[in-house]
Amino acid sequence: MIGWFPLFLGTLALVSAALAVTRPSVVHGLMWLVAALLSLAATFFALGAGFAGAVQILIYAGAILAVFVFVVMTFDASPPALARERLRLKQAARWPLLMVLALGLPLAFGLWGGAVATGLAPGGRVPVQAVGGLLFGPWAVAVEIASFLLIAALLGARHLVRRDPPTDSERPAP
């Protein structure tokens, strides 16, 4: 059971992602993205990586996509826009598809060829405590640096969308 179930869920995620990418409407795309992310979370759970799955749902599908949703509200979803998107997708699909195949097929077939022996012990479930011990232990510095990155992103985002206040000459007379 543990063998094919994650595979099935992973395939589900893959299909959802493919659909997400090819919708003319953003909202539909987002919905399918949610589906893909949730499938991925399920895959993580099926693999025994409970922490990863939980974090995936909470942050990825929760926070990140929520931000996406806020932005989607500004998007133009009128029927002419949708028709235009459909047309553009049809026109632009050929070369990227070929390129992706050229990239993906060697990747897949290269992987298919051999099983790499790493010398690590075969395992199963990885308990959360182990992950925590890792993150708070040897990888603490990396986590701190990642937090720097988050603060930088926060400040940057705040700065980028700020509208400048009107100058003194533009302010209406009190």
């Binding site: 693999l47 025994g48 990586a49 922490f51 990863a52 974090v55 995936q56 942050i59 990825y60 926070a63 990140i64 931000v67 996406f68 790493t118 690590l120 012990a121 075969p122 395992g123 199963g124 479930r125 990885v126 182990a130 992950v131 011990g133 890792l134 993150l135 990888w139 990396a142 986590v143 990642a146 937090s147 990155l149 988050l150 930088a152 992103a153």
Partner: peptide, 23 residues
Amino acid sequence: ARHGDPAGQGMFVLVLILAAAEV
């Protein structure tokens, strides 16, 4: 998960942080 190594999930967490910042 294959090797029972928490480093996999640790990397996943870092990737997630990266994704969040990037978004």
